[in-house]
Design a binder for these strands. Structure first.
Length: 326
DNA sequence: CGATGTCAAGGAATC
DNA sequence: GATTCCTTGACATCG
């Protein structure tokens, strides 16, 4: 089991994830590739083998009003192939996850088109890197506008209109409020898409009341042998440990602020994660875990240390089972 | 240098 | 139809 983290590197003083300059400064994928190279150095240095790239690695790469930015993947074909080969050789699993603005089932045709363009771009990026089928583009089903039935229908139509490469890279994830795992699995059945189960979202929203062990099993079953190792998302909910202070007259009042249930904590709760490993995960076939925590790579490294104290092992970027007691 | 505003982008609740 | 929140990070600008 590989454990991964998303986008930002906080360790070793912090590393930039992409060329984030604004369009006026002519940012370029070439710069992002150099930064990715430094991140791969970091991953190797710390024996980490799973990473989600920023959805902005290709600056303005699908912006409708900035066509001069559209050829970047092709322009960088050579550099991408080199970087891809390097990550492949290192056993590093890569993925991307478009932001909240990519809505494939929007009511607005313009928005659907933009989402499709974004998916094509990200698929082209992974293809140019020569990555295997386990390098996926993770997307939520999207909006509810117009009613769920119509929204699902729009998703299906948009999906079918995608190019072959985008369809091949796409996987769908259950979200925390609109499309629960049951619905996502039904869509997977109709499209052949693989499913990434997000355990935290599942705890937030699961109208079908699917027990965790079954949810995990069903999601993993959407991955066929030729798709590579399946993966899931895991995070811990933010707790109300933080207090806010506000002035009341001359006095300062301390108030407990409850975060929304869906908010991610800074770290992964090692006790819950261990329960997950020993419970639902124990009976499942091999899979990888993308950790979503605000402390990013530091959360992963902390969790790894904590699991080590609980008897789990780590070798070649993989979490291994607990040593036999005694 | 530190503080503040802004960014390509949507959805949904609210009025 | 317009406004605001959601929620994120870092560039860009200003004092």
């Amino acid at each position: 089991m590989k454990l991964g983290f998303a986008v930002k590197v906080l360790g070793d003083g912090g590393l930039p994830s992409h060329d984030a300059r604004r369009w006026q400064s002519q940012p370029h994928l070439r710069v992002s590739i150099e930064r990715l190279g430094a991140i791969v150095d970091y991953l190797e240095r710390h024996d980490l083998r799973m990473y989600r790239m920023s959805s902005d690695v290709v600056p303005y790469g699908s912006h409708p009003d900035l066509p001069q930015f559209h050829g970047q993947v092709e322009e960088c074909a050579e550099e991408l192939a080199t970087l891809g080969e390097r990550t492949r050789a290192a056993g590093i699993r890569l993925s991307v996850h478009p932001g909240q603005y990519a809505v494939l089932n929007s009511e607005h045709a313009e928005v659907r088109r933009a989402a499709a363009t974004e998916l094509e771009l990200e698929a082209a990026l992974l293809d140019a890197m020569g990555l295997g089928p386990e390098a996926v583009v993770v997307l939520h089903v999207g909006a509810l506008a117009g009613g769920k039935e119509a929204a699902v229908e729009r998703f299906l139509r948009s999906f079918e209109a995608l190019g072959e490469r985008a369809r091949a890279r796409l996987v769908i994830e259950n979200d925390d409020a609109r499309y629960g795992l049951g619905e996502v699995l039904a869509l997977a059945g109709k499209t052949g898409l693989r499913v990434v189960w997000d355990a935290h979202h599942h705890a937030c929203y699961d109208p079908d009341k699917i027990p965790a062990e079954e949810a995990l099993r069903l999601a993993l079953e959407t991955w066929r042998r030729r798709d590579g190792i399946p993966k899931i998302h895991y995070s811990s909910p933010k707790t109300a440990a933080e207090e806010s202070k506000r002035k009341v007259g001359r006095r300062v009042e301390r108030r407990l602020v409850l975060p929304p249930l869906k908010a991610h904590a800074d770290l992964i709760d090692p006790i819950s994660f261990e329960s997950f490993l020993r419970g639902p995960a124990a009976a499942a076939p091999d899979f990888d875990v993308m950790l979503e925590a605000k402390a990013k790579d530091l959360a992963l490294r902390r969790l790894r240390d904590q699991l080590a104290k609980r008897g789990f092992g780590w070798s070649d970027g993989m979490l291994t089972g607990p040593a036999a007691p005694g």
